Amino acid sequence: MTVVLDPSAQSAPIQGVLDPISCDARDFGAYARNGGWAFALMVARSVRPGGQSADETPKVSAKEFAELAGCSPERVMRYYKAWDRAADEGLVPHFEVLVPGQDIELPDAEAWQTYYVSRSSATSERGSAITEAAAAEGIRPTKALEVAENPTALRAAILADPSTAQAARAALLDRVKEDPALQAELARDIARTDELKKAVATETRAADRIGYVRQIAEKGQIRTPAGQTLDAPAELRSEAERHLSFLDELEEGEDTGEWATEAYDTMKNLVVETVEADPELRVQERRTKFYSSLQKATKVFEELTFDDADDIYEDDMVQRLEELQQAIGSCITALRSAAPRP
């Protein structure tokens, strides 16, 4: 079907070229310059706007125009709505001022995709959300809508292409921050997948070790094996800062596990050396460790109940308790002998 933008376009053929070819070339040139605006103008100047009756204007309805064009009314209305949106922003004239056959200067083709949506799904609430998100990302809504309408194709691209998988991962991470339902679903998926559970455990361990080094480097505090929190010596803090700087410079996606372990082990050894090098600190460390073990043992023993001793009695139980009693007695004796003399 030949598209005629101006009735006069059929006259004065290009010298040496047949008239139908001249019309096609001119129509092609108009579309190349203006894109969909050329077709939207045909709709805007030929289809009567809502609220006007056939008696008020020579224009026809969208249905009648579609029948003449041999396409669906929905397709006509997509061009109609694109023009309407552009008119609301002052980019093109409103329907009411246009008459059939009228030509005007059209916007550049690049602006067309901002107003035209080729898919009917874009009119839904879901489609509107996708369109807004696409605009925020600086891409054409039609591209995002096409992907959303074909999740199987998206799955295939993610499975086959690492860069697509990375983009999908980044998008999920952005979405999961504000989507509690998705958070729960992903957590369940991880808990039910052995490979993911192991990967999460590995990354968690690496993160904890980096956190240990960061605590020393940024807060200047160390935690001893017995659980004491102390101010870190300057040289130890400087070493932590060196390791942390290296860890922070690792590229995204690079495995941090090995480097985190090396930094963690180095700092743990330095903390032990720091404690052992200070006699007073060494004694305090032993005292703290002893108290910690004593509290744990006391709590465990207090949780034991003997209300049903008749049912649970075993010779081995009595023997173990007697041995424990002897150990406690020896401990008490040692502590009393070490007590300061009055």
Score class of each variant (00 low, 15 high):
179 D>M: 05
283 V>C: 02
102 Q>D: 08
147 V>L: 15
128 S>V: 09
5 L>V: 09
9 A>Y: 03
309 A>F: 14
167 A>D: 01
220 G>W: 05
205 R>D: 12
120 S>I: 05
208 D>E: 08
276 E>Q: 08
341 R>K: 12
80 Y>M: 04
282 R>C: 06
260 A>Y: 04
104 I>G: 07
128 S>H: 11
85 R>P: 01
89 E>D: 14
196 L>H: 12
185 E>C: 12
316 D>E: 15
21 I>F: 05
75 R>N: 05
205 R>S: 09
269 N>C: 00
244 L>Q: 14
256 T>R: 15
311 D>E: 05
214 R>E: 14
46 S>A: 12
96 E>M: 07
99 V>N: 08
31 Y>T: 02
321 L>I: 13
246 F>G: 02
213 V>I: 13
241 E>I: 15
75 R>S: 14
29 G>C: 13
228 Q>C: 06
191 A>E: 10
51 G>T: 02
76 V>Q: 09
282 R>E: 04
192 R>M: 13
127 G>A: 05
323 E>N: 13
268 K>R: 14
120 S>E: 07
171 A>P: 03
337 S>I: 00
150 N>V: 07
264 Y>R: 00
105 E>F: 04
253 G>C: 08
246 F>D: 03
202 T>D: 12
303 E>F: 10
86 A>Y: 04
12 A>M: 06
58 P>S: 03
153 A>E: 14
222 I>S: 03
